[in-house]
Design a protein around this nucleic acid. Structure first.
Lengths: 334, 334
DNA sequence: AAAATGAACTTAAACGTTTTAAAAGAGGGC
DNA sequence: GCCCTCTTTTAAAACGTTTAAGTTCATTTT
């Protein structure tokens, strides 16, 4: 059906090897024959068989990207930036979203072991599911490079980690709210690291944290909405809330507004991530920027280095991006 | 390095063929040997080489998904639903986003021709870029099945199209606004089909459309914001605007509010798509629902049918989904 | 003129599976 | 002992490349 090297070889009256060499631009083949072969290939509309090539080269020029879901601006942007980078190196990315299902991650790991990809990036599925770090370590030991992004690193020399300082992000958010005069801060979302950063800011200013002010749950936008409803229903409301991410923050705000609690007049809300929508929401959202695109690009760059056998600088084995407070309209001075 | 059929064969004292047969569950091999082989495979932690398998089976169990960008809730949801469906058939999806670049689409088409995928879905890159329908037709003629979603179909028997009735969606939006008493409607975004639907509603009610009320441009959220600013700056403002999609609508609203034009009190705004954020925005967005997930699932189902050689019902060759008006708070009766 | 060099091309192995056709072995019936 | 049949196993081709190791033949070197 499809035209192969052999077809070209016959038509050109040379051996299949010559054709291969010619099309790959080897300088061991005569210029004239090379051109002749190239012309014939063109005419026949030849395109090399990627499957055959993959077998002999032991490479599919494809990487796997494991994320919890695409329908989440943060991961979408991560995916985009990673795709953009690897694409520039003529690689492709297989989209592996797990929907926070541990078994799905497992299936993907097995697929990776089969050699369908040359490497993989595992993004942040940290807190909320059983991890397969042991299997992932096996994977890299079988020479399939892996890099983690925003996922708690196993301390393994062969698994580089690209992170943002989310501990500090939560700290910044809380610290800013306190500097505005807020005294009773709440936290929404499930992430040890962020919660700890949040706590450390309170501690620094000698504020204490009531249990009822911690909504430590696996939340999405709808979950944020429920938290907002719960807060609105309390007699003693917190005067500010730090959310694990912007989506949750938007959910919280929407619920508060719906229950006639004014944001930021009565309660200040801050998110983390700085997704595009944060700037377009109403009120626009005060948040802590996480440079997702840069992180994705860096992770991809590091993975490609590993795939091509380049050595990493020590810094690249644990690359941490700083976060930055972005002040908008969902917070105000008391 | 990695363990192969041969390794198992040696250890089991049988031929490589027997091992292959055994592991693939053939009933031509003795039960005892089968079990013995399976046990050894287990012990050695064997996993079949996907690259070799792909070569002989002429299948990679992978499809390509071509979309303009992932960072767009509509396409993210489409991607998610397609991934979910094909995953249930043990297939994977390669993420091919073009950033609206015609050449990128071209590169992907060539990659598809090389046999890296068993089929492909091309989503909606219709109006805003040079199309490669001719090359895509070649692709399917080379036996790589393709389905279009929300992309203007070439009239080719081998290219099924899954669509939503966006013409009608725009009609519904405009019709609803008119029923609320609005008389001077504007349109924002670049899509012939939607603009035509919009126009037909005006026509039906005998309203005419001034040129200045058509912001026919390739827009994203930021673009919507500019349009909102322009509208806010006009002395004679339209009293309602229909946007190509929800993102643009949100941009428009955000700008209007920033310029102290109240939505919906002074201007009603309606979107199309019904992304999740439409319900969480403030004001929540009146929009026309497009069942993206269902569309994605249907497209994937049809593609898988084509890949596995099943025949399609006539209906499946042109599958069109109805749209539905969703009334929220960004519109009001005059 | 023999030997050495080098350019241009070819042979054949390799990659790791699947799968077809053939071989080998085990019983059974005559 | 021979022929058949049936089960189990194996050899080998095929998939379409890449590439290391030849081979051929012309040209240069000594």
């Amino acid at each position: 059906m499809a035209v192969t090297l052999n077809d070209i070889a016959k038509k050109a009256g040379v051996s299949l090897a010559t054709v291969s060499l010619a099309l790959n631009g080897s300088n061991k083949v005569n210029k004239d024959t090379k051109n002749r072969i190239k012309k014939i290939a063109e005419e026949l509309n030849y395109v090399p068989n990627a499957r055959a090539r993959a077998l002999v080269k032991k490479s599919t020029k494809t990487i796997g990207l494991v994320i919890p879901e695409v329908v989440n601006p943060f991961f979408a942007e991560l995916a985009q930036s990673i795709k953009d980078y690897v694409r520039s190196q003529d690689f492709n990315v297989i989209l592996c979203s797990t929907d926070y299902q541990s078994e799905e991650e497992l299936r993907y790991i097995n697929m990776f072991r089969s050699g369908q990809v040359d490497g993989a990036i595992f993004a942040c599925v940290g807190d909320m599911m059983a991890q397969h770090n042991d299997l992932i370590i096996k994977l890299v030991e079988e020479n399939i490079p892996v890099v983690y992004v925003d996922r708690d690193g196993v301390d393994h020399d062969l698994i580089p980690v690209v992170k943002s300082d989310v501990y500090h992000a939560a700290y910044q958010a809380a610290d800013y709210l306190i500097s505005l005069g807020h005294k009773e801060l709440a936290f929404a979302g499930q992430s040890v690291e962020r919660l700890n950063g949040f706590k450390s800011a309170l501690m620094k200013h000698g504020l204490d944290l009531k249990d009822e002010n911690v909504y430590y749950d696996y939340l999405k936008m709808e979950g944020g909405y429920s938290v907002g409803e719960k807060i609105a229903a309390r007699k003693n409301k917190p005067d500010a809330v730090v959310c694990l991410n912007d989506e949750i923050a938007i959910g919280v705000i929407q619920a508060l507004i719906a229950k006639d609690v004014k944001v930021p007049e009565e309660i200040s809300v801050v998110g983390i991530d700085n997704i595009k929508m944060a700037n377009f929401y109403n009120p626009s959202l005060t948040t802590v920027n996480i440079p997702v695109s840069k992180m994705g690009e860096k992770a991809a760059e590091i993975l490609m280095k590993r795939i091509t056998g380049k050595t990493l600088s020590p810094k690249e084995k644990f690359f941490i991006f700083p976060t930055k407070l972005v002040i908008r309209d969902s917070t105000r001075k008391i």
